[in-house]
Simulated scan of single mutants.
Amino acid sequence: MAAQDITQRFIFDNADVRGELASLDSSYREILAKHAYPQPVQALLGEMLAAAVLLSTTIKFDGLLILQARSSGPVSTLMVECSSDQAVRGIARYADDLQGETLDELMPDGVLAITIDPTNGQRYQGIVSLEGGSLAAALDSYFANSEQLPTRFRLLADGRAARGFLLQALPAGRQPDAQEREETWQRLNILADTLSAEELISLDNQTLLHRLYHEEDVRLFDARPARFECSCSAERSGNALVSLGREDVLQLLQEQGGEITVDCQFCNSRYQYDEAAVHALFDAAAEHARSLH
Rank of each mutant, 00 (worst) to 15 (best):
residue 224 R to M: 15
residue 225 P to R: 15
residue 217 D to Y: 10
residue 210 H to L: 10
residue 216 E to T: 05
residue 220 L to D: 04
residue 187 R to Y: 03
residue 185 W to N: 00
residue 200 L to G: 01
residue 205 N to S: 14
residue 206 Q to F: 07
residue 182 E to W: 05
residue 222 D to N: 15
residue 185 W to K: 03
residue 206 Q to L: 12
residue 190 I to T: 08
residue 204 D to Y: 01
residue 213 Y to W: 07
residue 189 N to L: 08
residue 196 S to F: 00
residue 184 T to W: 07
residue 204 D to F: 02
residue 196 S to V: 00
residue 210 H to G: 10
residue 215 E to W: 05
residue 200 L to I: 02
residue 197 A to F: 11
residue 214 H to W: 08
residue 185 W to L: 06
residue 183 E to M: 09
residue 204 D to E: 12
residue 184 T to V: 08
residue 196 S to T: 14
residue 198 E to Q: 15
residue 189 N to V: 07
residue 196 S to G: 12
residue 218 V to H: 14
residue 185 W to E: 03
residue 202 S to K: 12
residue 193 D to G: 10
residue 184 T to R: 13
residue 218 V to I: 14
residue 214 H to L: 08
residue 209 L to F: 01
residue 220 L to I: 08
residue 203 L to A: 05
residue 189 N to P: 00
residue 209 L to G: 02
residue 217 D to G: 12
residue 212 L to T: 02
residue 181 R to F: 06
residue 186 Q to I: 09
residue 225 P to G: 10
residue 224 R to I: 14
residue 224 R to D: 12
residue 187 R to Q: 10
residue 224 R to A: 12
residue 222 D to A: 12
residue 189 N to I: 08
residue 222 D to E: 15
residue 217 D to K: 13
residue 201 I to Y: 05
residue 213 Y to I: 08
residue 196 S to H: 03
residue 203 L to D: 07
residue 214 H to R: 13
residue 197 A to Q: 15
residue 184 T to C: 10
residue 184 T to K: 11
residue 217 D to F: 12
residue 188 L to N: 04
residue 210 H to D: 12
residue 204 D to Q: 10
residue 203 L to G: 06
residue 195 L to N: 10
residue 220 L to K: 06
residue 191 L to M: 08
residue 209 L to E: 01
residue 185 W to D: 00
residue 186 Q to C: 06
residue 193 D to Y: 03
residue 213 Y to E: 01
residue 192 A to V: 00
residue 189 N to G: 07
residue 200 L to Q: 09
residue 199 E to F: 02
residue 208 L to A: 09
residue 198 E to T: 15
residue 183 E to Q: 11
residue 206 Q to C: 05
residue 203 L to N: 07
residue 200 L to C: 02
residue 196 S to P: 04
residue 198 E to R: 14
residue 207 T to L: 12
residue 219 R to H: 14
residue 181 R to I: 02
residue 207 T to C: 09
residue 212 L to I: 03
residue 200 L to R: 05
residue 224 R to H: 13
residue 214 H to V: 07
residue 196 S to Y: 03
residue 190 I to A: 09
residue 220 L to C: 08
residue 205 N to H: 06
residue 211 R to M: 04
